[in-house]
Design a protein around this nucleic acid. Structure first.
Lengths: 341, 341
DNA sequence: CGGCGTCATCGAAGCGATTCGACTCCCTGG
DNA sequence: CCAGGGAGTCGAATCGCTTCGATGACGCCG
């Protein structure tokens, strides 16, 4: 049942090495031989044995992907990302071995040490991630989604969240909003220092300051409906002067807007709202929210690209930040005219 | 850098085969030798080369997992499932190769043919799934999540959705509800014949009939907020007599209940609602919904168990249906007393 | 016409494990 | 005292592929 390269060789009347060269293209082969061999491959249904290939070539053509367990990124985004990694990897003739966060540094050592994979992509890295020194000494191309504190020797890909924060602040400020609020991720995310959250906030604050807008309220928010509603109430009660709002929390966006509406505020009439995160969330609210999308597919593509290129010898260590773009839907408008300052 | 079994053998003063036997436990080894070898393994940091092992033993210790692309199952459930499969596989000393639906039957042939994996788990199978004949002829243990029409020679695991439907109908009927409605998955799911949806409905109808309850309304529902709200309105308008409602649609559950409440109906005062699906969805509504949960972790565990056992020689083909349980939260109550029939 | 570079192919040596005899002790029973 | 047997170990074959060096044929140039 299992047909080997020797079978193909026999069938085509050539030597095994010739078959190998036909398949890999690493040496020139006459057109005639090539055709005969490929025909034999087809007829016999030959598939190279992955293990043997890995053994002989010290390349497994497999990329490890480490996915978060309980993620700071909202689950559908993580899933989109994972699926895209598989798709992109396939386009480069690689497969994907799935690991969970729970495997930790040992898991990385294991799959790398046993030559199961020849590159590693890690999602959801924290600023001070225990796996980073390990990745560095593994000697495989490693690509991180997210940007840790020390990126030396590692390739990182991420959305430029700082710029995303700036974009949001500027967008609102340029519409005349002078008091802005930010509803963010749960406190745990900030405590764990997952990077993207604080970088967004930093960019947001920076651009607000630049434009002379105040930021009287920054509210972390658990990813539940009631937490979002509570945040909305608190916002309206404690900061009635706020007219521009940024939400970076996929689970909170819709309920937050709903709560504001229910409280008699119109969006964008009374309050302009910008979201940061998965596009489908922003599109699914009423009204749809202007937002800075999270390009999961593109991140995955870059990550795989870097990983594969890393195999090619050149190790493109360094940080790749994708430029964010703000899609204007109908949730932002010029600030309402009121007693001006 | 790469330390091989020969290095370990030399270091421990034994032959390579002895090292192998120590590690695999397939022959008796003196306690003394065992200790020396293990110590050498530790000191040298030896990791068996996965490819070499696979080549020699014709076992890769890898399980393929095929995940849906755009899934009928809601994404967080799929993710939980995938993560659990990895976890359980690790517990059996296996790794997981991630494939997407997009790879189709050819992808299965590829990974099986090249001996990359030695078992396959497929999520989200349809009743008449093109991959099924392929799985059957592959000669590897295959486990399906979901139950196709022809299960001959295959192992299938699923929640007993028919029984879940029955449970819901009985629960409501036993509380005195005589008119029941069912809000289900999007029409596409039924058209694609994904099995679980229609089986649930069948069980629901069957038990309702048994208990003498009517089912005047069955509404498929897109997974959007507005679709759910629309379903709620239609229900109240066209079927005012309905007092018991079953929702099998994770995305619709919360907005549906919210819409009912907004329309002045109380849950469970006016309307009792039971959900089928992920527990966290049911817990996250106001009020929390009584529900039949989808035991993703347990399904994954069974699936991996079956796959691994399949490797052991015995092929436990057959259908394993997990018994559903209805968790009573606070969304169901005795039917309101009205003009009785 | 001899030497040389190319092209196409082959043979054989690994790659790093597993596994199947075979061999050596040593113990036990007859 | 010797045959028999189990425990412990080794050597060598094997798995299926890649890749390096060698070889033969051919055409070209001086």
């Amino acid at each position: 049942m299992p047909v080997s390269i020797a079978d193909v060789a026999r069938h085509a009347g050539v030597s095994p090495s010739t078959v190998s060269y036909v398949l890999s293209g690493k040496r020139s082969i006459s057109e005639d031989t090539r055709r005969r061999v490929l025909e034999s491959v087809r007829v016999l249904g030959y598939r190279p044995h992955a293990g043997a290939r890995a053994l002989a070539s010290s390349r497994s053509n497999v990329i490890a992907l480490v996915v978060p367990l309980r993620s700071d990124v909202h689950v559908p985004v993580a899933m989109r990302f994972a699926v895209s990694v598989v798709t992109r990897a396939r386009a480069h003739d690689h497969d994907v071995l799935l690991l969970t966060q729970a495997e930790g540094a040992d898991g990385l050592r294991r799959v790398a040490g046993s030559s199961m994979v020849d590159a590693i992509v890690v999602m959801d890295v924290e600023i001070d991630d225990a796996r980073i020194p390990v990745l560095r000494e593994l000697g495989l191309p490693a690509v991180l989604i997210g940007v840790p504190a020390d990126t030396a020797g590692l390739a990182c890909v991420d959305l430029d969240f700082q710029e995303a924060g700036r974009l949001c602040a500027r967008h609102l400020a340029d519409l005349g909003h002078r008091r802005l609020a930010f509803v963010g991720e749960p406190p745990a995310v900030y405590e764990r220092r997952t990077g993207f959250a604080e970088r967004t906030l930093a960019g947001f604050r920076e651009a607000a300051r630049e434009r002379g807008a105040e930021v009287p309220a920054v509210l972390p928010c658990e990813p539940t409906r009631t937490a979002a509603e509570q945040a909305a109430r608190r916002l309206l009660r404690d900061h009635p002067g706020v007219t521009g709002l940024v939400v970076q929390n996929e689970s909170a966006a819709e309920p937050l807007v709903a709560a504001l509406t229910a409280a008699g505020r119109t969006v964008p009439g009374d309050l302009s709202v910008v979201a940061i995160g998965a596009d489908d969330v922003a599109e699914g609210t009423a009204p749809p929210l202007s937002s800075v999308g999270l390009p999961a597919e593109e991140l995955a593509e870059r990550a795989v690209e870097l990983a594969v290129r890393g195999l090619g010898g050149d190790a493109p260590a360094g940080v790749t930040l994708l430029p964010p773009t703000l899609v204007d839907r109908s949730s932002t408008a010029p600030a309402p005219r009121r007693a001006s300052a």
